[in-house]
């Protein structure tokens, strides 16, 4: 990345996450992700784009090792989070440092809104005092812009909320643990345009505090909110640069074809 864009930044941002020669395969000899090298900057939004089946979700899920839920998975290379290889760490520890938001909102149906936000603490057996709990809940819900909407119904079930609200609750649940990075797997693909818009605005606020890596099918979403963009195709990281460059002046022909809607 000898891009001009990278050097012109006034305060060069520290890289929080680094993929080094990462390859992942589900079945022997077939690589879902091939030799990916990339460095993700702190407090920025990085979008991963690409057609279905290009390995973008697999790459995202490798960061918190959720891809290991498939037993036959094989991962090589290094994924450095704050300089430590997550593949060598305890998976549960990694997941506390790398929060994840899924395609469909999935609040815990038996828990109240309040308990949902604190679920990470509860499930990990982290003890917090009553006043700390209140503080965490309020801060996390404010972070995702949900506080004003739900502050009077904190003890109600999360499943009563609308889809967009549920998704913001799920983001609050991830944010509550103060992770180093937030991994989002097409977080707005199940939502209507208005709810999507709200989440996009909120992500722009969130990046002041958090690093966000987001998989998206939606190119205009990537263009709207991301600082840097990756384009993946058939498991390969074809292009990775700042979003403006990738959209206005892509280096690779495949990127150009994808972004101009010639396949996808």
């Amino acid at each position: 990345m000898e891009n001009m864009q990278d050097t012109k930044q006034d305060s060069p941002k520290h890289c929080i996450l680094e993929f080094k020669d990462v390859s992942i395969s589900y079945t022997e000899g077939k690589w879902a992700v091939k030799n990916v090298n990339a460095a993700i900057k702190e407090k920025s939004i990085t979008a991963i784009m690409g057609p279905s089946g290009c390995g973008k979700s697999t790459l995202l899920r490798s960061v918190n090792r959720m891809h290991e839920l498939y037993p036959e998975i094989k991962t090589t290379g290094q994924i450095l989070l704050d300089g430590k290889d997550v593949l060598q760490m305890n998976a549960m520890e990694v997941r506390r440092k790398a929060g994840m938001v899924f395609q469909r909102p999935n609040p815990f149906p038996t828990m109240s809104i309040y308990e949902n936000v604190l679920a990470g603490y509860k499930l990990n057996g982290i003890k917090v005092s009553r006043s700390q709990k209140d503080e965490i809940v309020q801060k996390s819900l404010q972070d995702v812009g949900l506080w004003e909407e739900v502050k009077d119904s904190l003890m109600k079930r999360g499943s009563f909320l609308s889809g967009g609200q549920q998704q913001r609750l799920c983001i609050a649940r991830a944010v509550a643990l103060r992770p180093r990075i937030l991994l989002m797997d097409e977080p707005t693909s199940a939502l209507d345009p208005i709810a999507t818009r709200k989440i996009e605005d909120m992500l722009l606020e969130l990046k002041k505090e958090f690093t966000i890596l987001i998989v998206t099918h939606n190119m205009s979403q990537a263009a709207r909110i991301s600082d840097d963009s990756m384009f993946m195709y058939l498991g390969e990281l074809v292009e990775f640069s700042d979003t403006q460059t990738i959209f206005t002046n892509p280096r690779d022909k495949r990127t150009e074809e994808y972004l101009s809607g010639q396949f996808g």
Partner: peptide
């Protein structure tokens, strides 16, 4: 997705 949500928060399998 319920199980994934629990695991993604760093909870152990048995806790989930």
């Amino acid at each position: 997705s319920l199980k994934e949500a629990g695991l993604a928060l760093g909870a152990s399998y048995s806790t989930v």
